[in-house]
């Protein structure tokens, strides 16, 4: 019996394999050449670390008159440890960043604190002080090491400890003196630019503030 075309074709197995293989390779090369920039197959497990877009609430708006003459940026390494009997101790280490600002609060100026006599201007300034008790920028805090679970109380205690250490390091007699010297220099330059030849300045001594 004569074999039909299909039977004859199927009997040439090797030929079929070769033709299919060539078609596969050519097809793959074509896809690669024409879709080179396209990712043909990829699988990724992703999660986003971006926070949600949430409203920003203004709690208060204040008019302030704080003249800063010295800014001290400080970083403190604060750690806390919780001892455990049969396990490794829990530990949390954070690096806090803060900027302590020394200057004068214009709202503390007395009536008539600026007076002029001819080419002389006289200034009576309040004492140089820390302009704000809140000087830590917790958004810049870096978590250095964490072992265990830590509650709000522990983190609040670390924050207060960082504030105390920063004050101890930055609120020195030397820094207050430097702020005062800079105040004299800056204000003298400012008032001289208004045409005054002489600038007399008295700055109250800071007796209420403890320095380190």
């Amino acid at each position: 019996m004569k074999k039909n075309f299909l039977e004859r074709l199927l009997s040439h197995q090797v030929l079929i394999v070769v033709l299919v293989s060539v078609a596969l390779v050519l097809g793959a090369s074509y896809l690669r050449k024409h879709f080179e920039d396209m990712e043909l197959v990829s699988v990724q497990l992703v999660s986003s670390n971006a926070i949600d877009l949430t409203p920003t609430q203004i709690r208060s708006i204040e008019r302030i008159g704080l003249w800063e003459f010295l800014a001290i940026s400080d970083e403190e390494l604060i750690d806390t440890i919780r001892h455990r009997t049969f396990q490794r101790d829990d530990r949390l280490v954070r690096i806090y960043h803060g900027t302590l600002r020394l200057g004068i609060n214009l709202s503390q100026c007395k009536e008539g604190w600026v007076t002029t006599h001819g080419d002389t201007v006289s200034l009576q300034l309040p004492p140089i002080s820390l302009l704000s008790e809140r000087f830590i920028d917790e958004a810049r805090t870096r978590s250095f090491y964490e072992q265990g679970t830590w509650d709000a109380r522990a983190k609040e205690q670390m924050y207060q400890k960082a504030a105390r250490q920063m004050k101890r390091r930055c609120l020195t007699t030397s820094n207050f003196r430097q702020a005062e010297d800079n105040a004299r220099t800056q204000l003298t330059t400012l008032f001289r630019s208004f045409g005054f030849k002489h600038v007399e300045m008295s700055i109250e001594e800071n007796t209420s503030f403890r320095t380190f």
Partner: peptide
């Protein structure tokens, strides 16, 4: 520790509250 001599007059302060989610 970084100490900078400045001459800045702060005139406005905004207290902002935000809940980050």
């Amino acid at each position: 520790l970084r100490v900078r001599q400045t001459s800045r007059l702060y005139t406005a302060a905004y207290q902002i509250h935000k809940i980050i989610t």
